[in-house]
Amino acid sequence: MDTAIKVSNLSYHYQDGTEALRDIFFTVPRGKRVVLMGHNGAGKSTLLLHFNGIFLPQQGTVEVLGIPVSEENENRVRQLVGIVFQDPDDQVFSSNVWDDVAFGPINMGLSKEEVKNRVAEALQILGIDSLRNHAPYQLSYGQKKRVAIAGVLAMAPEIIIFDEPMAFLDPRGQESLLNILHNFHRQGKTLIVATHDVDFAANWADQVVILKEGTVFADGGVELLADAELVAEAGLRQPVITRLFAEVLGKETDLPVTFDQGKELLKALIDKHKSF
C-alpha cells in the first residue's frame, strides 16, 4: 500500500519555548480519510503546518509521498499538499474571487490556458461561479470558505488538509462541505481533517489519530471513539450514537459508533422484540 504521509519522531518547539509536538509517529495510507483530534492546544494545527513545509521538522522527519519535507523540497511538497486554513480570512486575500482562486495555479507556473481551466473547474465544483467577480468582503463566511477550498483545489493537490472545516458553517454549509469531501475522496485524494467534531469523525473517517499534549495518544479506526475511558483522557467525548446506546443498553463494550451501525443495531433490537 502506498503511503501518503509518514511522520517519524517529530518534535517541535515554538520560539518562546512552548513544546507543541513531541516524538510524533504515524502513517497515513494513500486515499484514506483521516481525522486528527485532540483538546485545544494539543498540537493539531502545528502538526498540519509540517505537512507542506511551512514548519520544518526540528527533530525527526516528515515524508510526503516518499519525499522528505525539507527546505529544498518545499516547493514540490506544497504542490502535492494543499491546506485549507481554519479562518478563510487568513487565506482569501485577492481583490476578487477569480484572482484568489488563480493565485496557486499561477504560482505553480501553469500556462494561461491551464490556469483558466483550473479556476473555472474549481469555481464550478464549489458552486461559486456566480461569485467570480466579487470581492472577499462582499461574501458570507460560508462563501469565503468555499473560495478558500477552491483556491486549494485549483492546484490539484494529491493530499488535502482541512483545519476545522466545519466550524461556523450552518447546517446546510456543513452538508455541502461533506459532499465536497465525499467527491474528493472518490477522486482518490488523501484527506486529513483536524476537528473537534466527534460525530463527524465517527461517521466519516477511515483512520482516527488522537493527539494529547503534543504526542500521539491513540491511532486507529473509528471504534477508538467508543472507548469511554480513552476519549475522556484525551479531552474528547463519545459520539452521540455511542452514548445513546451506552445509556439504553447499560453496557460499555461493543457499542455502535456510526449512524449506520446504530441504525442496524436498533433495527435488530426491534425485530427481536417483535418476534416475542
Binding site: I54, Q79, D89, F93, F103
Partner: peptide, 23 residues
C-alpha cells in the same frame, strides 16, 4: 494574523516563481 496570512500564501506555492505574466 499577518503571519497566518503569510503561511496560507506559502501553502499555495507563493514565492515559487515570479509572476511573469498577467492573466
Amino acid at each position: 494574523r499577518a503571519e497566518r496570512v503569510h503561511w496560507a500564501m506559502l501553502s499555495r506555492a507563493y514565492g515559487a516563481r515570479d509572476w511573469t505574466y498577467k492573466m
